Computed example of a mutant assay.
Amino acid sequence: MDFTDQRLSYEKGMLDQQSVPESPFELLKGWMSEAIAQNVQEPYAMSLATCGADNKPSVRIVLLREVTETGIVFYTNYESAKGQDIAENPNAEALFFWHELERQIRISGSIAKIDADKSAAYFQKRPHDSQVGAWVSQPQSGEVSNREVMEQTFAQLQSDYPENSPVPTPEFWGGYEIRVEKIEFWQGRANRMHDRIVYMRDQNSSSSAWTTKRLLP
């Protein structure tokens, strides 16, 4: 298959370095709110890239669940392949791409588990069957002989924890926060003259200080 003749001209917006807010989190929240208002499907879905001790990068889609004052939070199985990567190399990058708005956001930083009580509180907010499903996915990414084994385990857990009964939060499941060190906002422009504004945490100042610069497309 040859896609060399397939292309679009991005002309839906612009990004001016002189008008961006001082904090990248303000712009992140603004862009996220706009994506939701424009009915972008699951705008909080992000590609998460990790790399373990084997130096082989790995990427998958996870769901953003919170923007904090210092970073972004998602939840997963701690014993998954991504969890193993994070244990070996506590650095990660996340990417949002919203085709409808011709925008990308790249977020880089160190990553660490969040407080266990906060993870448990979120787990109990999930739909009942999603809570049950978290117990089936153990170890996540582990091999299973067939789908029927998964379905049987799910059915047994549903019997153990019927609807409206509490499902315990697994010790192997919880949240991570990527503590932002760099965040790039990308706005598509015509003729591939894209706007790219990057925020860098100022290491010589307070933790809330940021510097910005424009990058070539």
Rank of each mutant, 00 (worst) to 15 (best):
D5A: 15
R7G: 08
S9E: 07
E11W: 02
G13N: 06
M14G: 14
L15W: 03
L15F: 02
L15E: 01
V20Q: 02
P24Q: 10
E26P: 11
W31H: 03
E34D: 13
E34P: 03
A35R: 05
I36Q: 13
V40S: 08
Q41Y: 15
E42S: 12
P43K: 09
M46R: 05
M46C: 04
L48N: 01
L48I: 06
C51K: 00
K56A: 15
V67T: 03
V67R: 01
E69W: 08
F74K: 07
Y75C: 00
E79L: 11
K82C: 01
K82R: 07
K82G: 04
G83S: 03
G83A: 00
G83W: 01
Q84V: 13
A87Q: 13
A87P: 06
P90N: 10
P90Y: 06
N91G: 14
F96N: 04
F97S: 13
H99R: 14
Q104D: 06
Q104L: 05
I107Y: 05
S108G: 15
G109H: 05
G109Y: 02
D115H: 10
A116L: 13
S119F: 00
Y122G: 08
Q124A: 13
R126W: 06
P127N: 04
P127S: 03
P127W: 02
G133V: 07
Q140W: 01
V144S: 11
V149W: 12
V149K: 07
M150Q: 11
E151R: 15
T153H: 14
S159W: 10
D160V: 12
Y161N: 04
P162D: 12
E163W: 09
N164R: 11
S165A: 10
S165P: 04
P166E: 07
V167Q: 00
W173T: 01
G175M: 06
E177L: 02
E177Q: 05
V180M: 00
A190I: 03
R192P: 03
D195L: 00
R196K: 00
Y199A: 05
Y199S: 02
Y199H: 05
R201C: 04
D202G: 03
Q203C: 12
N204V: 09
S206N: 11
A209N: 15
A209H: 12
K213M: 15
K213S: 12
L215S: 08
L216R: 08
